[in-house]
Design a binder for these strands. Structure first.
Length: 494
RNA sequence: GCCCCCGUCGUCUAGUUGGCCUAGGACGCCACCCUUUCAAGGUGGAAAUCGCGGGUUCGAAUCCCGCCGGGGGCACCA
């Protein structure tokens, strides 16, 4: 039997990291077993569908490198790839209708004419009395006459499943073991809505069956609705797939991670400068581990070793700090060319067109100083400015020159004359020319370097000084030091 | 309220059938080294009475029972 798994998002918005972790585990499981990974769109709630969501979901998956073997065509979601389509539920209504009719004919389901208002009232009343909110089965045993009368009034009924009122329903979960529910704690849930669309419980199960899904790896929040699915399978005479309920991903408040927790959409991670390899690595370790020490794991290694028995049961908090650290590791593993290409869009968004060759020379200076691509703007922006730098005078003076702006100006002038006409403009030559100056000026080299650093970068924390000067070029370096001297002289004159 | 799931350093986790665990690794934190700043890197450290209480056993994080805590579900949402 070849493994077939699916990832079934609803097109209600962007994919967030919790959901894509589920997608990742399914994808890894499929790839590990040489099976099939299916993308299916669950759009049976007509009121919640968001235009463009399908495209955005596909983009998220593909960015992370999670490709599907069957599902909507990435180039044209209105078309399908695979022989079990359509892969969008709104185009599979016949299947759900047929299953519903089967249920009705087998007397495992019934028409319910109760109004939403009545149900709402019922629920409120039950909550007030601290009772479990459950449908009271008023329509379960309607006489034919009553049914006809209600029908004649033009009420469109829903179809409810006839849940057994006694006994228990159990199933085996690949992660949690055997789980048992008392049927009396369940109620007669809706399978087909009055608008003719199926409810999730019915729809996903019909599709899984028709699409020959062998394993369902889904979030833990679905564990408590699983007995309904088992019951439905049984009523339809179908064999349920193997089940595995994945531990949830929590926000810092220990509640299930959601949009309430801020930047959790996958595409936002891309916007902030995370690499897909890093996010994949991080997500793969949320609830799964290779062994007792390995942290950096590439895609192929994940595929090679991914098995369900190494998935843990307990939920995991999403640790942004660790993800950032990991992203830094991946950044440092990039060649200068690749890093330049990664960083370029972030720079260009802020400061316009960037010369790639220049950038390739800059990138070694920031590679081990950034954890996010977006930080390149802050870290290396000064390389691209043509105007005079704008920075607080206090940064330039620092502690050493706080009360001695004239001395600072003098030091910088000494640097200028040592450097301005250098025959060669590279880091070694610059250092040779500047370092000896400190002694003559009666300064510690660190104080002198700090002064120059702020003058040419506008920052107190920056890449190594002489390499920075070398890459920045003679013209900008000299110009910025001159500007700093002028500022210092005008303040010391006061 | 009812049902289900979960419970090892702040966080992610190792701990497969009880002994090699005086509980290992990683992020973060602290210190030192390197050093012109910031990083990166290196070394070391603090940090978990394995939720609590009872058992079983020569021996339990690992088995049993009870309790507590956290989370999830209980829609004509998925």
């Amino acid at each position: 039997m070849t493994v077939r798994v699916r990832f079934p998002p609803s097109p209600t918005g962007e994919l967030h990291v919790g959901n894509i972790r589920t997608a990742l585990f399914n994808w890894l499981f499929a790839r590990h077993h040489g099976g099939t990974f299916i993308l299916r769109i669950e759009d049976t709630d007509q009121t919640r569908n968001v235009p463009g969501a399908i495209e955005s979901i596909m983009e998220s998956l593909l960015w992370l490198g999670l490709d599907w073997d069957e599902g909507p065509d990435p180039d044209d979601p209105s078309r399908d790839v695979g022989e079990y389509g359509p892969y969008v539920q709104s185009r599979r209504l016949d299947h759900y209708r047929r299953a519903t009719i089967d249920l009705l004919q087998a007397d495992r389901a019934y028409l319910c004419f109760c109004s939403p208002e009545r149900l709402e009232e019922l629920r409120k009343d039950q909550q007030r009395r601290k009772q479990p909110p459950k449908y009271d089965r008023r329509c379960r045993d309607l006489a034919d006459g009553q049914r006809k009368e209600l029908d004649a009034r033009g009420i469109t009924p829903v179809v409810r499943f006839k849940t057994p009122m006694a006994g228990e329903t159990s199933f085996h979960d690949l992660i949690r073991g055997d789980v048992v529910f008392e049927n009396e704690t369940l109620d007669d849930f809706v399978v087909l809505k009055s608008d003719g669309y199926p409810v999730y419980h019915l729809a996903h199960l019909v599709d899984d069956h028709l699409m020959k899904v062998t394993h369902v790896l889904r979030g833990d929040e679905l564990l408590s609705s699983t007995p309904r699915h088992i019951l439905l399978h049984e009523a339809l005479g179908w064999e349920p797939p193997a089940l595995a309920h994945l531990p949830m991903i929590l926000g810092p408040d220990k509640a299930k991670l959601s949009k309430r927790h801020g930047d959790t959409s996958v595409l936002e991670f891309r916007e902030r400068g995370f690499m897909p390899e890093a996010l994949l690595n991080f997500l793969g370790l949320l609830g799964w581990s290779l062994d007792d020490r390995t942290e950096i794991i590439d895609r192929d290694t994940f595929i090679k070793h991914f098995t369900i028995d190494r998935i843990v049961k307990n939920p995991a908090m999403f640790n942004f700090e660790k993800l950032s650290w990991m992203n830094g590791i991946y950044i440092r593993g990039l060649s200068y060319e690749d890093l330049a290409d990664h960083v370029r869009p972030f720079l260009e968004r802020e400061i316009g067109p960037v010369d790639r060759d220049y950038l390739v020379r800059i990138v070694p200076l920031i590679q081990e100083r950034i954890k996010l691509m977006s930080e390149a703007v802050e870290m290396a922006g000064f390389f691209f400015l043509d105007d005079d730098l704008d920075y607080p005078l206090a940064d330039l003076l620092g502690r050493r020159f706080a009360d001695a702006p004239a001395e600072a100006a003098g030091a910088l002038e000494a640097v200028l004359s040592a450097v301005r006409d250098l025959a060669r403009w590279d880091a070694a030559t610059l250092e040779e020319a500047v370092r000896p100056l400190a002694d003559g000026l009666g300064l510690k080299s660190g104080d002198l370097f700090g002064l120059i650093r702020v003058a040419i970068t506008g920052r107190t924390a920056a890449p190594p000084l002489f390499q920075t000067m070398a890459v920045l070029g003679r013209e900008r370096t000299v110009g910025r030091i001159e500007h700093a001297v002028a500022r210092l002289q005008s303040t010391s004159a006061k």
